[in-house]
Design a protein around this nucleic acid. Structure first.
Lengths: 115, 115
DNA sequence: TTAAAATACTTAGCAATGCTAAATAGTATT
DNA sequence: AATACTATTTAGCATTGCTAAGTATTTTAA
């Protein structure tokens, strides 16, 4: 259980990170859960109910595309996602927005005012 | 009008910044609106409907305390806020949480994985 | 001296997103 | 055969920023 503050900080950022990971190459929901957990060193441990709706939103917005893969070695199908061209561009844009946002916030903690 | 992404990034951060500003010395709602706008160079332009509920939450949580000031030069009262001891400690904690959060997010954009 | 603008606070209702929780199903391990 | 792991779906809640409108006082300008 996290405090409310930490929880709220994630809003918007999770979707950005999921898009970023998918831009790195085709992947699927369950793997994203694992990667978010591991690559954040246990700081972004999502429940399925958080991740999957993010994937559906990204798909609705046309930023990623899905196809069901008939596993080769195994039979159970996975829903593979990859970034569309629009998704790749949007990923770049969000990175820039994030960086500017970060700078703005940090400005409030530097020397009293944000020069 | 901002895009949905930029809007969502603010969640949690606005309350953190308001607490930070109040920790810097007694102030009141309208002044906070101005300072957030100016010290962010126009990036955090809040409507009253966003700011005042934040102040009420901080007060409910016991992080800030309010008193009505009978203006000296003017008659109209302002609701002055200042940080409580708990608020000062919480401000420090949130700064640390923010810094760790920031690091974690940036980790996803550095060298592919978050070492 | 009246009208407008700026100062200052309040509140109702909506939108977006992370959370809890539970359900479904196939595969691997013991 | 039972349990754990992989994998996806969905319903409902909580939090918080947004729009929008309203009230009231003070200052400025016509």
């Amino acid at each position: 259980m996290e405090d409310r503050f930490s929880q709220q900080l994630k809003k918007g950022v999770l979707e950005m990170l999921v898009l970023k990971l998918i831009c790195g190459g085709p992947t699927y929901g369950y793997e994203l859960l694992t990667r978010l957990r591991e690559e954040s060193h246990g700081r972004f441990v999502l429940k399925e109910g958080t991740l999957y709706p993010i994937l559906y939103r990204l798909e609705d917005e046309g930023l990623i595309a899905a196809r069901w893969s008939q596993g080769e070695g195994r039979t159970a199908p996975k829903k593979m996602y990859e970034a569309t061209e629009a998704g790749i561009l949007e990923n770049i844009r969000r990175m820039q927005v994030w960086q500017e946002f970060e700078e703005t916030v940090n400005g409030f903690y530097r020397g009293g005012n944000n020069a």
